[in-house]
Design a protein around this nucleic acid. Structure first.
Lengths: 225, 225
DNA sequence: TGAATGCTTCGGCTAACATCGAAGTATGAA
DNA sequence: TTCATACTTCGATGTTAGCCGAAGCATTCA
């Protein structure tokens, strides 16, 4: 027995409620301070500090010192994908939180998934790109076609610059609310950044929800009908 | 905060080493008895019984009574996909077991992933099917084309019977050793069953490894060059 | 019916760990 | 320099939960 990689370490890291809450908070994509994360998890600063060092030792999160603050964020895209995946599984099993809360519909419509767009809007965007032959899928990998590159460039995104990064440009990420894939990778991040920079959408405070303005939603739907 | 599904319960279930070992053993796809699982995890029967009831309460496994035995198996395909996914993540992070063990190369070449073929052989099979236009990918879903249906039928698999089941016929599953997708779903299960039934390959005892006979490997490569 | 096998339940022990108060370190501001 | 803020480390506490021995069911076989 004892074959393959050891999953129990990762399970144990995610298995503590306080740590799970911190990770969920970090799925918002913003780097947060230890104090903020302690608040999110409902624990004191000392306890949070202990948890954070464990998560860091497990390479699930990374910290960046900046002045007297220390900002914590998910270590990389892979962690976000994994967490979204587990959330999808948990949602199917009915392992939902006791009360769905009023924000739930908004989360299902559009939310940030670590650094890219998820929810109904995210899924529909990828569907449209694939249907139009702008993105091709290959398992969990994805690729931008020539026509796709033109389309993305027209939105105002510097595709060559994305390609120059070491990260994959396109990836798929399983959406827990839609149970279908949406677009991740540096392109997914760039697109969400564009929508927000252009004022089409705004992030809700203390939430993963993304609220599109009426005008922004109109434009988004025009782009990805 | 406290948004979305609760991942900590699932993390906690997987987070205990004894339970993780049992789940890994069940990834072999065979239903095992409590005694066998206790052996796999290196614990006594009583302790195993306690763990098993927790896993069952969490809907990760299901049991089937048969005479005086109780057979435990993963609850469904979804669980297998999730575990393989976490294994892939763990492998990337270097959360490997202390010693890779001698079986590791065999596992990377061909192994059973709950009920379908994984490893180099599994990945190459799906690659070939996609390249030939027999399977189309759409995120984590996949579909068999007309030409694909003919090809599969020629191998001796009753595709309409697969379609009649409620389960998805094609799914992709992320391979932890190859970091690419292989074919899951009822078709993936049927294909592996065919290979074994035709004597092309045999399951190794007490392992997830699959050993192809020389003749079987020749035929497999001829089918999926 | 009695014996054997397979598994669960109970009870108590132990180790691990999450938690927080208090003290310590580091950075920045006054 | 002094104070304040941000965070970590230490120490003590309490709860949890894994673990196993022993006893209790349930099923099968003789």
């Amino acid at each position: 027995m004892k074959e393959g990689p050891d999953i129990s370490q990762i399970g144990a890291l995610i298995g503590d409620p306080a740590r799970a809450n911190m990770l969920t908070a970090l799925m918002g994509g913003q780097a947060l301070t230890a104090t903020e994360l302690a608040g999110a998890a409902g624990i004191t600063l000392q306890t949070a500090s202990s948890h954070l060092s464990k998560l860091e030792a497990g390479a699930l999160i990374a910290q960046r010192k900046q002045g007297r603050h220390r900002y914590f964020a998910l270590a990389d895209d892979e962690v976000g994908l994994l967490l979204e995946n587990i959330m999808g599984f948990a949602a199917n099993r009915g392992h939902l939180r006791t009360r769905p809360g009023p924000k739930d519909p908004a989360l299902r419509k559009a939310r940030v998934c670590y650094n890219h767009l998820a929810g109904d809007f995210g899924v529909r965007m990828l569907d449209r790109l694939v249907a139009d032959g702008d993105v091709t899928l290959d398992g969990d990998d994805a690729a931008l076609t020539q026509s796709g590159e033109a389309r993305i460039a027209a939105i105002g995104i510097d595709v060559p610059a994305l390609r120059a990064q070491r990260r994959p440009v396109c990836r798929t990420c399983l959406d827990w609310s839609e149970r279908r894939s949406h677009l991740a990778g540096s392109l997914g991040e760039a697109l969400l950044g564009r929508f927000i920079a252009d004022g089409w959408a705004k992030r809700e405070k203390d939430s993963r929800a993304i609220r599109f303005t009426a005008e922004g939603e109109r434009r988004f739907v025009a782009l990805f009908p």
